[in-house]
């Protein structure tokens, strides 16, 4: 699971109102490089919860990867930024799409319910008594 998916996952336990963001616990992670696509990042940016992404990157061992506040679009998508080492857009790309959480857990901020991540797959399956009706 990458941090992109973490950013869009919420706790689904019965009785929880927001259940977001899920606290990320990382036991094992890996990095897989992929090509940067500025159009994808431009499209997803307005939907991102920046704080949740910063917290997740930090939990994955990259506390200084992202600025605390979301950078301006003008900075992110400035000419040449995608090719500039250490630019805001490269950092965003790295955080969202290149960090993989292989083993760990997602913890519901409201209920404390822990969802395991095994072999890269978060398990959001609930027990019968936890399901919303």
């Amino acid at each position: 699971m990458r941090l992109l998916t973490h950013n869009f996952l919420a706790s689904n336990v019965r009785g929880v109102s927001t259940g977001y963001p899920l606290a990320l616990e990382v036991a094992k992670s890996s990095i897989k490089e992929v090509e940067l696509n500025a159009d994808f990042l431009r499209g997803i940016l307005p939907k991102l919860d920046w704080r949740a992404l910063v917290a997740a990157a930090s939990a994955a061992g990259f506390p200084d990867l992202l600025a605390a506040e979301q950078p301006q679009e003008a900075e992110l998508f400035a000419d040449g930024a995608a090719d500039a080492e250490g630019s805001a857009i490269r950092r965003l790309h790295h955080a969202l799409l290149e960090i993989h959480v292989d083993e760990g857990a997602l913890v519901c901020p409201d209920s404390g319910r822990s969802f395991p991540i095994l072999k890269g797959v978060p398990n959001m399956l609930l027990h019968e008594d936890e399901v919303r009706h």
Binding site: M1, L9, G120, V121, N123, M124, V131
Partner: peptide
């Protein structure tokens, strides 16, 4: 990204 869940629960 693969998720074990009921349909799209959590998303």
């Amino acid at each position: 990204d693969v998720i074990a869940t009921d349909i799209v629960s959590g998303l």
